[in-house]
Amino acid sequence: MTTQLHQALTALEQIILGKPRQLRLALACLLARGHLLIEDVPGVGKTTLALALARVLGLRFQRVQFTSDLLPADILGVSIYEAATGGFRFHPGPIFAQLVLADEVNRASPKTQSALLEAMEERQVTAEGETRRLPEPFFVVATQNPAYQIGTFPLPESQLDRFLMRIALGYPPPEAEKSLLAERERRDLLNEVTPSLTPEQLVQLQARVKDVKTTPALLEYVLALVRHTRDHNGLRMGLSPRAGLAVRRAAQAWALLHGRGGVIPEDVQAVFPAVVNHRLLAASEREAGAPTAEEILDVVAIP
């Protein structure tokens, strides 16, 4: 089945040029049943990435453009009175899709943000006293413009860790950008992509992630990384146990993606920055002295 994953990856690489690493992280995030936060300036292909993921994996896709006047019901759905039946009928909101793109999530009010984040966490929606399960697989890709842009509500740190990973796309490398300019519109290309996986296969793959072996030696390494952040002076507090679990799960997905039956230290190193960087809280306001995940990886020895 991992061959299909590779097909999916290859297809994605045709659309998003020059970003193989981010694509793998996004796919691993999805496999690990986590949600993805993409933080970058407008125009680097955040939305295209989400669309491509949905297309390649054959997922039902919904897009919500977050604005400051967006209400929770606009996402979750609303019950409307129907004269014909004489009762209320629930009209599910855009969240009832397999892949939801929450575009510019930091433009919405905190209330709306937290409605989304709760749905992400619970994988179900409670509206008007009735709980409805969200479809399987369920995957949220949220995009966020860096916080210095005006008129935004940056996600609070406590909610940031609802996202398994945070990645940045960045500008494409020069060669890729050249092809980008020369070739056809990316969104047009998308229409020609055929799904490499069915949603059912994806669910099966997701189930296999937890079976990827993590030996005690490997867990020691994860522990060493987590403990290092707890002893560090530059951090307000270290990584939580939940963060440790997230690192493990992401590394398992990464190993599966690379066709390994067990996690090796390199897998942990590959996912660690994406999983951890948005969970590290600097001790001082201006983030001085706080190490990045990359710096932590550099100094912590592999036991």
Binding site: N233, A283, S284, E285, R286, E287, A288, G289
Partner: peptide, 11 residues
Amino acid sequence: NHPGAALAPGI
């Protein structure tokens, strides 16, 4: 000697 902003005096 610390680049960026000030460290806490306690540290």
